[in-house]
């Protein structure tokens, strides 16, 4: 009987709500949420924040779509926002009415996925390219050949991040097509190229930074900011902008339609549009934010870093990532399954 009483007591304890004034559950990419930013937010607003991480837009979407996830905030890339909207998964929270919205760079207000910003606010923008350990390979790194046709030195040491859109887009650029093309010959050529390249890859993984820093892996399809953080720990690594073309993207913060802590979520959206806080995000993630005045809080080294500044020579081949038609999305998904299974 004592055991039963004890059990009941424990159950009672475990179902008690957390003690803070409020809670906020954020679902974001891994290694993408600055701990100091969260700490500052918790202190400022007396809210207890829980951050849970995912490894790709597709994984996050699948989890949200399944229901019963318990998250308040999600950080989808621009190309995937329309899908969330179509499924009715985001709350029309009108962040454009928030006090700090005036700080958003006008260039990032009327974006194709959320014109006028009724659902989302900018998190950061960046590019997807390749990262190579130049101590191991000293040739040209501004090319998709790093992962699609790896040089001898890198064979078996290349990682590919599980970012379906970025990886397939770059393969399409390499075979001379446009992202989201419905031309099946181009798509087939891109898939063939990827499948042929796969045997030279070490992993298809959201790999931990230490795997590169410790040189377990020597190259990767990678995002610019992540590449910067690795370069800072291991100067051998450099980031390349493939001349065949590379995606330029923005990730966005949105409140989920079934969020339980909408007020706290709005506080967070407003909080990250403050220049000083946006600078904290850039400093941690290594990506540019879209908040005017944040430069004042960023170090000169960060602002001038080769990963955050697209070189003039590469600007012509940067392509803003877009949403494919549903048919092409379905083809992308099947190509990706075919590649990763």
């Amino acid at each position: 009987m004592k055991a039963l009483t004890f059990t009941t007591a424990l159950v009672a304890i475990s179902t008690l709500p957390a003690l803070a004034e409020g809670t906020l559950n954020i679902y974001n990419f891994g290694l993408y949420t600055p701990p100091d930013l969260i700490e500052k937010f918790e202190k400022t607003h007396n809210v207890e924040v829980t951050v849970t991480e995912y490894d790709s837009n597709e994984t996050a979407l699948a989890k949200i779509e399944a229901g019963g996830h318990g998250f308040d905030i999600i950080v989808p890339s621009g190309y995937v926002v329309p899908v969330y909207l179509e499924k009715g998964l985001l709350l029309r929270s009108e962040p454009n009415q928030l006090p700090n919205f005036a700080n958003v760079d006008p260039e990032w207000v009327d974006v194709s996925w959320d014109a006028g910003r009724s659902y989302t606010v900018p998190w950061v923008w960046g590019t997807t390219g390749v990262m190579v350990n130049t101590k191991v390979y000293s040739g040209d790194i501004n090319t998709t050949a790093i992962f699609l046709d790896p040089p001898e030195e890198l064979k078996g040491k290349v990682n590919v991040v599980p970012a379906m859109q970025d990886v397939i887009d770059m393969a399409i650029f390499t075979v001379g097509g446009e992202a989201c093309t419905s031309d099946k010959d181009v798509l087939k050529a891109a898939l063939d190229k990827l499948v042929a390249a796969k045997e030279n890859w070490a992993s298809i993984d959201y790999a931990s930074f230490e795997k590169f820093i410790n040189e377990d892996l020597q190259a990767s399809v990678f995002w610019s900011g992540a590449a910067m953080r690795i370069r800072e720990a291991n100067p051998g690594f450099a980031y390349g902008y493939p001349k065949e073309g590379f995606p330029l993207w923005q990730d966005n913060v949105a409140i989920l339609a079934d969020a339980k802590n909408v007020d706290n979520a709005k506080l967070f959206l407003d909080f990250i549009m403050d220049p000083e806080n946006a600078a904290m995000i850039s400093a941690y993630t290594g990506y540019g934010n879209a908040i005017k005045g944040s430069e004042a809080f960023m170090s000169a080294a960060l602002l001038a870093s080769p990963e955050m500044t697209i070189p003039e020579s590469a600007k012509g081949v940067a392509r803003l990532q877009k949403t494919c038609s549903p048919e092409v999305q379905a083809l992308y998904a099947r190509m990706w399954t075919d590649l990763t299974k």
Binding site: G30, S208, N214
Partner: peptide, 21 residues
């Protein structure tokens, strides 16, 4: 698990992906 319900092994699994310290 729901958000904030990491157990020791799931925390370790997540940590393994993030940082191998």
């Amino acid at each position: 698990k729901s958000p904030g319900q990491d157990t020791l092994p799931t925390y370790l699994l997540g940590e393994l992906r993030r940082n191998l310290t």
